[in-house]
Design a protein around this nucleic acid. Sequence first.
DNA 1: AAGGATAGCACAATCGTTTGCGCAAAACTT
DNA 2: AAGTTTTGCGCAAACGATTGTGCTATCCTT
Lengths: 337, 337
Amino acid sequence: MGQKNTLFTVSEQTGYSVSTVSRVLSGKARKYRISREAEEKITAEAERLNYQPNLIAQTLRTQQSKTIGLLIPSVDNPFFATLSGIIIGILNAKGYHTLLADSRESGKDEVQELRMFMSRSVDGIICIPASSTPEFHEQVSSQIPLVLIDRHFKSTSLSYVCTDNYAGARMATEYLLGKGYKSILAIQGVPDSMPNRERVRGFKDAIGVHGVAFSVVGDAFSVENGKREVLSAFSGAQKQFDAIFAFSSTILLGAIDSLRRLGLRPGKDVGIISYDNNGFLDFMDPAVTRVEQPLREAGQIAVDTLFEIMDARRAGRPDPPSRQILIPPTLVVRGSC
Amino acid sequence: MGQKNTLFTVSEQTGYSVSTVSRVLSGKARKYRISREAEEKITAEAERLNYQPNLIAQTLRTQQSKTIGLLIPSVDNPFFATLSGIIIGILNAKGYHTLLADSRESGKDEVQELRMFMSRSVDGIICIPASSTPEFHEQVSSQIPLVLIDRHFKSTSLSYVCTDNYAGARMATEYLLGKGYKSILAIQGVPDSMPNRERVRGFKDAIGVHGVAFSVVGDAFSVENGKREVLSAFSGAQKQFDAIFAFSSTILLGAIDSLRRLGLRPGKDVGIISYDNNGFLDFMDPAVTRVEQPLREAGQIAVDTLFEIMDARRAGRPDPPSRQILIPPTLVVRGSC
DNA sequence: AAGGATAGCACAATCGTTTGCGCAAAACTT
DNA sequence: AAGTTTTGCGCAAACGATTGTGCTATCCTT
């Protein structure tokens, strides 16, 4: 049942042509002056056959797939997973479906996946970019509405909605400094990504004013990276730090793990502050002071922006002015520093 | 660039017919005896034009979309999100893309989404079912290869790969009992779902042997549910428990939150054990003893099983024998009980 | 009763690919 | 030189839907 029945089946069973059936079933009966009688017979038969339109054929014909492509740098990262979940939920509610792809933090893979989205005629794309330059995204955007989320590019007309990572990192760092910490280790994520660069900038600017010791290390938003960097920074005759700023909760976990291995108590021997929202952070030992980002709001704005572009293009209007939004994050104070 | 160029464009530019171009570009040049010369010219021109096949048209014609539908009960639940991530990763590596949908734990929505998958001509479906009966899934399965994961139905020929929830819950409960706890509160998730039922059964069977006090409450795999049930079980003149078995890590968080509100120390005043893997559980206060499920293995088996069915059907062979797998979970002992 | 208006529907092209079949020219046979 | 085989490619149908255009009854008008 289901997929087997096409307009043609209904057409055969009712004696009406495929075109008439199509018009009735897509709600255009009035517009095309189809008789009540025909309308009822056709609707009844479609019901009986459990007719479902073939979205593939529909897409080919109308160039509208009711599908949005969502491209993220890593499905494994809980931060991206959470954000994806939020976006998928919003899209579902709008009757859109989501094709989810993973660029594995690789610019090459990202281009691949974007090409794929185009081949699949997605109606729009939401992307957390992995590339360091916006050229390809801009090309894509000229064909398919595209908005960036979480990460953006320096000079581009692409619309984006991110959180203010500079402000967030600066706020976190100043909080640490206010607590009297004297040497701070920042463990960063993917160095080239805009949020990371902004966080580094915020961190350094905050430090700059006070002139305490610091170091920025690391290269990935992963648990492994957190482990590795803490091990190499705290073991042996290395320089020691009295506080750590983890740029993501995954990094945080790795860092804590290594601290414990080294016999250091996170939050006591070493102050801890982190980026990212995660329900678990409140239940850790100690609960982690952190910079939270309003993800739901960001997701909503991204979707809204995307749909505005889509609507405009469909109506033949010019794109709405590029919207580049930085949402302020929040410092959530707990007991880890 | 990109999407605009079709076989027809390349055909026009090279002077060869659309069919020849198609055969060359889909690697069937040899099979159809296309001359080297034609092949080279066409390939070069396609390259130059940056030709990308239109997957929608391809799907319509070949009935193969290279897309798998993944249906989960809730994108918000980190457990499902993690499992989804794993599956999407595996599929990506196989060159398949994933349409991710959310049934919101509703049988109605699930049917909707499955219909949608059929309309979209997905090549296969992986599903964590929300319905209580398998009828519709079986209907779908007769049209599109489908395997269940994490949850299954009582008597069905559908293939599934789940973890042994009975064994897991029994193991956890026996561990609690071994520790001397005398009254245990089990906070369950969605009552009708098979994993939940199995866990309840494992819990009760374990209890049965020892005859200690117990209660099974709750109705959702959510933080809220955990909060609510602990509040109502521990506040006022209510019966008190000396241990809690949370059927998911989300429930666990809620439970801990309420315990703390009530001035009870999780792991000290009340023993805690949980279901679910989650990197954060090791960093909580105290680290949580839990039943972990081998998700990566489960995902891999599900995908493999799905592809075997897909291969068989494509080759016109009968479906391979239904594969119903229960993977044993692991008890990870920490300090919370 | 002849003419125009309108209602009600079907024809056929189209979206971009794939593929069975067939046809012409070249190459080979005897 | 006539027939046979092979080479190299194009025609056209098909996948399932949408939609501009046009055709035929019926109806109204006078």
